[in-house]
Write a protein that binds this DNA or RNA. Structure first.
Length: 495
RNA sequence: GGCGUCUUGGCCGAGCGGCUAGGCAUGGGUCUGCAAAAUCUAGUACAGCGGUUCGAAUCCGCUAGACGCCUCCA
């Protein structure tokens, strides 16, 4: 269903620093590229936030009726361990430390990445290209950049000439940096770099004899590609030289995305991306999550409860809901209190959704469901404001309860509209899943057993045998099962 | 040192010139044998100091603090 003609989507473009009305290059089609992970270790929760944010964006674009080609890379080569374009790449290092083939490392953590995102109910991208699968293309684009006069060779390595580029282009326009300032701030002359300028960056590095991951090059011997090149190559290959949306974490804005723009312009003569979107960081204890400092938590540790930060385990949907309660461009701090509060809110919404099925319709509606639906769309149209959307969903929950209790009335059509809207936003756009374990074999067995216990207790209560009924209730609580005595019978939830 | 962002009620978190954000927690109701659960309801916050304006949490300046990038990083 095409909705984008009616729903005016605005998004914040990092390149211009303003909210802009989104217009795709090709009517009805959207090309979106998101920088993926370097697969040399397990993805932590902070990494996940970025991918969950863009998953939500991807889902909403699809909901609006766009046909989206979503490309997200796997970085399985390059990316050195330290600055100045020197040293080992991370994957090789890990491979050496763990005595594995680099590609074993890549495989292991790629699988972990997929597995974790799958638990978070992320939709897979349409294309997930790897850097090592595009070495040929990277070499080709380097040749083009050299031919265009924006790169030079030094001892078998190729560097991007930032100064030259800046003469007829604007280096730093995305991150708001001025090349002159950067040069002025360069401390001393860092060692004997082969680069003409500290600002220059590597497109290709000659491999030292010990370097494991290496490919033949036209520049005298083996080498490996530079950090930023793969994204330029793979995005342009699958989405075209100019495409609609490029996303990634805020920390990639500089230098990574800045370099991508430079490479794209140097190779193709025009800017590669119309809308740059940056997702903000997830912090833990007020500091950015980072594996190197140990300030991070793994999703699996959250799901199992096996960690030092949280008092209990949390389901992936609860974690996702927690993230959706903050805007993707805001820093979000992860804490026990915050996630506990989110879980309760999440459960309340889930319960409200279930009660939609129990509503009885009236001839007239005293509620204004269509207006509420429009507010939901308005929230998402305003730069994917999921926290406002969730606030509206809570308003929806209030409507549902009011109708349930007969304080308000709704026509069958309005009830259907509410149901569709919850389905669309809660499940499809936010990508949440209710924690219903019903349907599994285990739960069928449990349901049967519980029904028996509930029946026995109901009899005891009918006989005013409070001692027995309370004993059943209390012991079940101790066993992690909570009984709820409602007007139309007793139900239970597993804690 | 340079560039940038942020500071909202007990906690989390929207808002970006005038109108109740929302959630959690808390108080008070309803329901209930009692609970729990559910549900209704109450609170009036914007770091500090100046300024602009009829009017500022929202714009400008200064101060303080925090964070991010400047090196791989989602």
């Amino acid at each position: 269903m095409v909705r984008y003609q009616d729903q005016k989507l605005q998004l914040y473009n990092s390149l211009t620093g303003e909210k802009e009305i989104f217009k795709s290059i090709n009517e009805g089609l959207v090309g979106m590229y998101v920088c993926g992970p370097t697969v040399y270790s397990n993805v932590h929760l902070g990494n996940c936030r970025t991918f969950i944010s863009f998953d939500m964006i991807y889902r909403y674009l699809q909901h609006l009726g766009y046909k989206v080609r979503y490309v997200r890379n796997i970085t399985d080569a390059g990316h050195l361990t330290d600055d100045a374009d020197e040293g080992e790449d991370k994957i090789s290092k890990k491979a050496r430390v763990e005595k594995l083939e680099p590609m074993e490392i890549v495989q292991q953590y790629t699988l972990d990445f997929h597995n974790v995102l799958n638990k978070f109910n992320n939709l897979p991208p349409n294309i997930e290209p790897t850097a090592t699968g595009h070495i040929v293309e990277q070499i080709e684009i380097i040749k083009t950049i050299i031919d265009n006069g924006y790169a030079y060779e030094r001892n078998g390595s190729i560097y991007f000439n930032v100064l030259k580029f800046n003469e007829d282009h604007e280096y730093g326009k995305l991150s708001g940096r001025k090349l002159e300032d950067m040069i002025a701030n360069t401390r001393a002359l860092d060692a004997q770099s082969e680069k003409d300028n500290p600002q220059d960056f590597a497109l290709w590095k000659k491999a030292s004899p010990a370097h494991i991951m290496r490919w033949p090059s036209p520049w005298g011997g083996d080498g490996f590609p530079g950090w930023h090149l793969e994204c330029t190559v793979m995005s342009s290959k699958y989405l075209g030289e100019t495409f609609d949306i490029h996303g990634g974490g805020m920390d990639l804005k500089f230098p990574h995305h800045e370099c991508e723009i430079a490479q794209g312009e140097a190779a193709h003569g025009h800017s590669p991306v119309n809308y740059w979107l940056h997702a903000n960081m997830l912090t833990l204890n007020g500091k950015k999550m980072s594996k190197s400092t140990g300030n991070s938590i793994l999703p699996e540790e959250l799901f199992t409860g096996d960690n030092d930060f949280m008092e209990k385990a949390f389901s992936p949907s609860v974690v996702r809901f927690f993230m959706m309660q903050a805007h993707y461009r805001s820093v979000l701090d992860f804490s026990n209190d915050a996630i506990v509060a989110a879980e309760k809110g999440f459960n309340r919404l889930s319960e409200a959704i279930k009660t939609i099925a129990d509503l009885t319709s009236s001839k007239e509606s005293s509620i204004d469901a269509p207006a509420w639906v429009e507010r939901c769309y308005a929230a998402m149209n305003d730069d994917f404001n999921s926290p406002i959307l969730i606030a509206e969903l809570f308003e929806g929950a209030k409507m549902i309860h009011a109708v349930k209790e007969g304080k308000q009335t709704a026509t069958a059509a309005d009830i259907e509209l509410i149901k569709e809207t919850f389905n669309a936003f809660f499940y499809d756009v936010l990508g949440l899943e209710t924690n219903s374990k019903t349907g599994s074999t285990d739960s069928k067995h449990l349901d049967g057993a519980m029904q028996l216990i509930i029946d026995l207790r109901t009899q005891a209560r009918a006989n005013k045998d409070w001692a027995t009924s309370d004993q059943i209730r209390d012991q079940l609580v101790a066993a992690g099962i909570q009984l709820k005595d409602g007007a139309d019978g007793t139900t239970y939830t597993v804690k």
